[in-house]
């Protein structure tokens, strides 16, 4: 291992930022869609379920290319975002966050959905008889009870987002300082002679971050579970 160059640090900082933004911004959607899939019966439920899980099954490169087609400057959504809000995703770190969020979404939804399904609907009925409106029931009973599932889903998504490579490099390329995350940086270092040292350092950092996230999630999960079980 050798001393870290500024490029390496940039990759680490960028990866953390991309993964954090991807996780936090997708969390509300993850909770909403998990709720729909767990609790509601509606036409198109199967299609929604399939769409959510698609990135898990598709080759990441395909997902990345589809994102490029949709969100590129000339793409239908990308053009719209650019014209209306001045937001550009392609070849920007924000695009990396989008790619990471989409790739991590199925894992997040799965964990939260399981948590929803584990909540006893009879408790929610009891809350309603005590005078709580549906949103109140959700905020005061359902949400606290699924908290461990949300934490688990968020950590899984964060870890997945940190490691996302295929869709990211296809959608936003591998630009140092802008879109070069830890995996793309490792890939880049391995392409040049003498880059193995830097690559190894990044590998070690990856392992450390992953372990840290795992330990943190275990700790938070245990704390919440203890609070819920009483």
């Amino acid at each position: 291992m050798e001393a870290l160059g500024p490029e390496t640090w940039q990759a680490v900082a960028l990866s953390l930022r991309v993964a954090l933004v991807a996780t936090l911004l997708s969390l509300p959607f993850g909770i909403g869609i998990a709720w729909l899939l767990a609790r509601r019966d509606f036409p198109g439920r199967g299609v929604l379920n399939g769409l959510v899980h698609l990135p898990l099954i598709l080759p990441p490169v395909v997902t990345g290319y589809l994102l490029l087609l949709l969100f590129g400057r000339q793409g239908p959504l990308g053009g719209l975002l650019h014209d209306l809000f001045g937001i550009t995703l392609a070849f920007r770190w924000t695009g990396a966050a989008l790619a990471a969020a989409i790739m991590a979404f199925p894992l997040m939804v799965r964990a939260i959905r399981l948590a929803f399904e584990a909540v006893d609907p009879r408790l929610e009925a009891a809350a309603a008889t005590l005078g709580a409106s549906a949103p109140r029931v959700f905020a005061t009973v359902t949400l606290p009870l699924i908290a461990p599932g949300i934490v688990a889903g968020a950590i899984l998504a964060f870890a997945k987002a940190m490691g996302e490579f295929g869709a990211t490099i296809t959608f936003v390329s591998n630009i140092p300082g802008e879109t070069q995350t830890i995996p793309s940086a490792i890939y880049a270092f391995l392409q040049v002679p003498g880059g193995e040292g830097a690559a190894l350092t990044l590998v070690a950092i990856s392992v450390a971050i992953a372990m840290g996230a795992l330990v943190a999630s275990e700790w938070i999960g245990a704390r919440i579970a203890r609070r819920i079980r009483g």
Partner: peptide, 19 residues
């Protein structure tokens, strides 16, 4: 709606909120 009926219910199981 249920939450506006002012009907207190004691179910077969206590249904206490565990958290």
């Amino acid at each position: 709606p249920v939450h506006r009926r002012r009907a207190g219910v004691v179910f077969q199981e206590p249904r206490l909120f565990p958290h």
